[in-house]
């Protein structure tokens, strides 16, 4: 049984159809990356899984239990096993609470009265390589990287089975980014936790994700193992995204494939293939609507795939 199973998730805000049928699953211990442009619905997907965004249709099952639209009474005990790392590290920490209160808040919320919070705070800070005297600090006294690590400590406090991480390394310096990813990797190996990670840094995806899905306008257009997607992308959009990654080498040969225009408005979804108007490889057949097809674990929504 998959740890997390998302089937045909639909979210609309009024007339704006943000997610139009997103399906994927995550196995225990697996890291799944969601990538796509701003506005493609990445954040909405994981917020909907955590019950923080509405989802009008579809199903989200966690360890076999249906949780889409579940009331807080059902969600709260589950949040022990499913933790969220928010995008804005400083903004996600209450400015009036000390780091000790922030990272031990999960125990209080879950009513774990038997825990000694000072000991737990110390243990968690050590786990994320922060000095233990940071327990008495307030969020404004932390750097961005330190605030991230507090976010990680808080997400891991209850030893969840799944972490939903929204841009966990955005805005971090490269060396700090490496530290954080190593930490997550290490914890994954030791605690066996699974992760859904959102990022637009493709270099990061390559190093942390087992499988990845590419979102475009609230729909998956391609999915597969990280290796397959990087080596043999078949959807033109994936190809464009991968080719846009600037390399730290001034002489890198760039076979860059430019995307045409801007993402279309969600209020007026294009007919046929929704990527058609921006696609450098579009053909006549693309005026028809492509179906999601899976072939040997590689999912694709394209009528004129690249070979």
């Amino acid at each position: 049984m998959s740890l997390l199973n998302v089937v045909d998730l639909n979210t609309s805000y009024g007339a704006v159809n943000v997610l139009a049928g997103v399906s994927f699953s995550v196995e225990p211990g697996e890291t799944y990356a969601l990538v796509g442009e701003s506005g493609s619905g990445k954040t909405t997907v994981i917020r909907a899984i955590a019950g923080l965004a509405p989802a009008q249709e579809g199903s989200v099952t966690f360890e076999g239990q249906e949780i889409r639209g579940a009331p807080e009474k059902v969600m709260r005990p589950l949040r022990k096993d499913m933790a969220m790392m928010f995008q804005d590290p400083v903004g996600s920490l209450s400015p009036r609470l000390t780091i000790r209160s922030l990272i031990t808040e999960p125990y209080r919320i879950q009513g774990m009265k038997d825990r000694d919070l000072d000991t737990e705070a110390k243990r968690l800070l050590e786990m994320v390589n922060l000095p233990t005297h940071f327990a008495d600090r307030y969020p404004y006294q932390l750097s961005g990287g330190q605030a991230r690590r507090v976010g990680v400590a808080r997400a891991l406090a209850l030893e969840p089975k799944l972490i939903l991480a929204d841009e966990p390394t955005a805005g971090l310096d490269v060396s700090v980014q490496g530290e954080l990813l190593n930490l997550l990797n290490d914890l994954r190996e030791r605690l066996g936790l699974a992760m859904v990670i959102i990022t637009h840094n493709l270099s990061v995806v390559r190093h942390v994700a087992d499988r990845m899905g590419i979102l475009y306008l609230g729909r998956l257009v391609e999915e597969g193992t990280t290796e397959t997607i990087f080596n043999e992308p078949r959807h033109p959009y994936t190809r464009c995204l991968l080719s846009a990654n600037p390399e730290p080498d001034p002489d890198a040969r760039l076979d860059r494939i430019a995307l045409k225009g801007e993402p279309p408005s969600l209020l007026m979804r294009p007919s046929g293939c929704e990527f058609r108007e921006r696609c450098p490889f579009s053909k006549e057949i693309c005026t028809q609507t492509p179906e999601w097809e899976v072939n040997g674990g590689h999912g694709l929504r394209c009528l004129a795939p690249l070979s």
Partner: peptide, 12 residues
């Protein structure tokens, strides 16, 4: 810079 590593690294 992870963009530098072509192969998947266990430890960055």
């Amino acid at each position: 810079d992870p963009g530098h590593l072509k192969e998947r690294a266990r430890v960055l």
